[in-house]
Every structure is written in structure tokens, then in C-alpha cells.
Simulated scan of single mutants.
Amino acid sequence: MTNKLSPKKLLLTKWTAVKPIAKQKHFLISKVILLEPPSEKIELVEIEAVYSQKTSVISWRDLSNSELWIQGWK
């Protein structure tokens, strides 16, 4: 099952890591990172762990990999 993701609509969406990352499962997209103009394509997003507030930067395309991420909090 492939999720159709729109990078422009990712901000503040909720995600569950299939395999916990540093004992964290629930994440929120806290920032959408644009590449330098003129392209201004979204390549990266900053995810924030709900419990610890630690942030990481990942490719937004990784979110469509159902072996890594589930949309919503499960």
C-alpha cells in the first residue's frame, strides 16, 4: 500500500515509527524544509518525537515507506 503524500500538506501531521527510534514511536512533522530558490522543492522534513521533543531531519519520501512509517498515531 503506497500512501499518496503531498509534501505541502505534511506540516503538523502525525506519524508512528514501525520500529521505535531511540525508544520513541510517535512523531509530529514540525517543519517542512525547502531547498534553496529558485527550485523551492520540498525534500526534507523535521520530525519531532512527541514525548521527548527531540527532532530529526528525514526525507519526506521516507514517510511513504510503510515498512518505516504509519500515518497517524497507532
Rank of each mutant, 00 (worst) to 15 (best):
M1R: 09
M1D: 12
N3C: 11
K4E: 11
S6F: 15
S6I: 00
K8C: 07
K9I: 05
K9H: 15
K9P: 12
K9R: 14
L10N: 01
L12M: 15
T13S: 11
K14A: 06
K14S: 09
W15Y: 09
T16I: 10
A17L: 08
V18P: 03
V18K: 00
K19Y: 12
P20E: 04
A22G: 01
Q24T: 09
K25H: 14
L28F: 10
I29V: 15
K31N: 10
K31D: 06
K31E: 13
V32M: 02
L34G: 12
L34Q: 12
L35K: 04
E36G: 08
P37Q: 02
P37H: 01
P38V: 06
P38C: 10
E40G: 13
K41C: 10
I42R: 03
I42L: 01
I42D: 04
E43P: 07
E43K: 06
L44M: 14
L44N: 09
V45F: 02
I47E: 01
I47C: 06
V50F: 05
Q53I: 09
Q53F: 14
Q53K: 15
K54Y: 04
T55V: 13
T55H: 09
T55Y: 14
V57Y: 10
I58C: 01
I58E: 02
S59M: 07
S64K: 07
N65K: 10
E67P: 02
L68W: 05
W69A: 08
Q71S: 13
Q71C: 11
G72F: 08
